[in-house]
Amino acid sequence: MTIQNLKSQNLILFEVISGSKSFGLNTPTSDTDIKGVYYLPKEKFFGLDYIPQISNETNDEVYYELGRFVELLLKNNPNILEILATPEDCILYKHPLMEQLRIEDFLSKLCNDSFAGYAITQIKKARGLKKKILNPMEKEKKSLLDFCYILKGYNSVAVPQWLEENNYKQENCGLINMPNSKGMYALFYDSKNSLGYKGIVQKTTSNEVSLSSIPKGENDIAYLSCNQDGYSKYCKEYKEYWDWMEKRNEDRYNTNQQHGKNYDSKNMMHTIRLLQTAEQILATGKLNIRVSNRAELLDIKAGNKEYDDLLEMADGLIASIESLYDSCTLPETPDVEKSTRALIDIRKELYR
């Protein structure tokens, strides 16, 4: 099913403008994100074709099946609670049956972990981007050969350099394992390429070195060390970096470049907002997602704060949240039985 199917079949129960516009943090360049709740046609819900979530290609329009929505509410998922707590001026449509799902029935001490935990994830994202900005990777990918070294006394030389210095070809080399020595190999060389050696690697994309059958009487000419773990780590970072380069939001990236603080300022803004929201929930027992400190948060988004100052601010909020947790009057968890009854009542009415 598609979002268009939901709309053409009148399956949408709740539809809101979410994100920066619902938070009161939108600017002239802000996108419009749409979130919502739907129910499935009877044959799909009772059959095998259950669909918990539907979104468009850019993921700026996401709709949750009613049961999935309630399930995530019970887990105090920040994004889902914020949908239910959307201000009236951002609600596009609300089916009368949705009145049975009230935000106060779901808020609990679980918000301490869900909101603060999500904020910590945002900090990791900001640090990850900082690492990418400060450590750009060459487009030409290294091969396993670049992580192999020839031992020379108490030192070592990179295999590509050693091959060039000795006018050797890697495909004429043969390797055998060194016993009891992980990543260590004895290296043989066949200048005529007549002994069937497999080379150090068979392809530039190889993930491991090649081993050869060495005829008796042949003498090794060197010992080779292969840092295969280092190569695996490099391949993972290379993929992450170039995936990020391909998918990054250019406007957002340019903003981060212009303010020169080498962190993702939008992520850090949301980190502080999430922590402030968790503090609000534990202090008041309520959730109001429309921020009262718009100027402060947009100042963070613009990169006008030092990264270390923001981390200190986050630490202060976390300490406040931990202090409020013990005195908070919210239940430990939402009332599952009550929420389940509401869900059943809504479904009975929908499928009557």
Results as ranks from 00 to 15, higher is better:
Y93M: 12
P136R: 00
I346L: 05
N254Q: 14
R341A: 13
K305A: 13
V37Y: 01
L310F: 02
I300R: 04
N293R: 01
Q53G: 10
P87G: 04
I321F: 01
K152R: 12
R68E: 13
S18I: 08
P215V: 07
A295M: 10
K305P: 01
D309P: 04
F188P: 00
S156A: 08
Y189C: 01
S292T: 14
K42I: 14
M98Q: 04
N155W: 06
N76V: 04
L11T: 08
D49V: 09
E337M: 11
G36A: 06
R273N: 13
K233Y: 06
E165Y: 03
R347E: 14
L129R: 00
E312W: 02
E322V: 00
E61I: 14
R68G: 05
K169P: 05
L282R: 00
I150M: 03
A116I: 12
A158S: 10
L25F: 07
K192G: 11
Y351S: 03
N256P: 10
K348Y: 07
I176Y: 00
D113R: 05
S265L: 04
D308V: 08
E57L: 13
A222I: 06
Y168W: 04
P41L: 12
T2P: 06
D335L: 03
I91T: 06
L350Q: 00
F115R: 03
E88S: 13
K192W: 11
L92R: 10
N59E: 15
T29W: 10
K152Y: 07
N76A: 08
R341I: 14
G174M: 02
K125V: 13
L101Y: 06
M269W: 10
E99R: 04
C173Y: 02
E279Q: 02
R102W: 03
G174F: 03
G67D: 10
N135D: 07
Q257C: 15
D190F: 00
K142T: 02
L73C: 03
A222N: 01
L145M: 09
Y307D: 13
L107S: 04
L13D: 11
I12A: 02
F23Q: 11
I346P: 00
R127Y: 06
T284S: 08
G128T: 06
H259G: 09
L195H: 04
P331S: 03
D105W: 05
Y39R: 00
T284W: 01
G19V: 04
K44E: 15
Q9T: 13
L297H: 04
C235H: 06
Y93F: 15
N10I: 05
K301N: 11
N256K: 06
R294K: 08
K305N: 14
Y263I: 09
T284D: 09
Y307R: 00
S114E: 11
L40C: 05
T27I: 11
E138C: 03
I103E: 08
E99I: 10
F46D: 12
M268L: 12
G303V: 08
D308P: 00
A119S: 06
A186D: 12
K132C: 05
Y325F: 11
N193E: 14
A116M: 14
E349K: 07
N155M: 08
P87T: 05
S320L: 10
C328N: 06
N249L: 12
L298T: 03
T2E: 12
I123F: 06
E322D: 15
E279F: 00
A319M: 13
K152M: 14
K216I: 12
M137A: 02
C328S: 14
E61D: 09
E246A: 13
